[in-house]
């Protein structure tokens, strides 16, 4: 049932595809983390801008990532922006998770006591200094674990890129399957890879969480 020789054969090929998966994860998460912070900051700045951002976030979270990937990949060329599959896909993933991350940051901001804003005003700090030196350093550490969980979620969703033929792990496994008519080993290996990586990172996040709450809690 399980062919070990075949397994050894396809391992290096899958390993190379795993590099693409990791790259997509890293770039996608950088976009998500930065853009999410920007969105959450806009929400702080004014109620009207906040409502616009809130609606955008709701729109992004209410529609499937797969459709968003298709949308960027197929629709952007119509308006003259031609992106290769990897770029379009990673961008879609980054935007999608930016919506989730912005909610995480927002919770972080809300947990900073009002007195911190007031003390900053009393010291005549500028809004920018207040945000950068006083609020952000207090809002960020507690939300790092939540961001970590979204990093893992994002990582697990990268197989969606296979739908626009980015040759990451899942696509490679499917290609191997269609060429050899053996799906068991490649698909199972991909599953195991994700399982092991997620469990490991979830463990890391838990350790980080404990450390942070001891340090800042």
């Amino acid at each position: 049932m399980w062919d070990w020789a075949f397994t050894i054969d396809i391992l290096p090929v899958l390993a190379r595809a795993a590099v693409i998966t990791v790259q997509a994860t890293a770039i996608g998460f950088v976009i998500a983390a930065l853009l999410g912070l920007v969105l959450a900051s806009i929400r702080l700045s004014s109620p009207a801008a906040g409502l616009v951002v809130a609606i955008l976030v709701e729109l992004v979270r209410s529609t499937p990532l797969l459709i968003q990937i298709f949308f960027l990949f197929f629709v952007l060329p119509k308006v003259g922006i031609v992106l290769d599959a990897f770029t379009a896909g990673v961008l879609a993933i980054g935007l999608h998770y930016a919506a989730y991350c912005s909610e995480v940051y927002r919770a972080g901001f809300e947990n900073v006591p009002r007195g911190q804003w007031e003390a900053s005003i009393a010291l005549n700090l500028s809004p920018w200094t207040t945000f950068k030196d006083i609020i952000l350093p207090q809002a960020l550490p507690p939300v790092v674990p939540a961001l970590g969980n979204y990093l893992i979620a994002l990582f697990k969703e990268t197989p969606l890129l296979s739908a626009i033929a980015v040759v990451e792990l899942m696509q490679r496994a499917k290609i191997i399957g269609s060429e050899t008519f053996r799906y068991t080993e490649p698909v199972t290996l991909v599953g195991l890879f994700f399982l092991v990586m997620s469990l490991l990172s979830a463990g890391l996040v838990r350790v980080l969480d404990g450390w942070l709450s001891r340090r800042y809690g």
Binding site: K156, A173, K174, T184, G191
Partner: peptide
């Protein structure tokens, strides 16, 4: 719980769809 949260729905879908028939 750990297996189904540790991999994504797509991987599970493919596994059930492609691998189960081979069993």
């Amino acid at each position: 719980i750990e297996i189904f949260r540790g991999t994504s729905a797509l991987v599970q879908l493919f596994w059930l769809y492609f691998v189960l028939p081979q069993f």
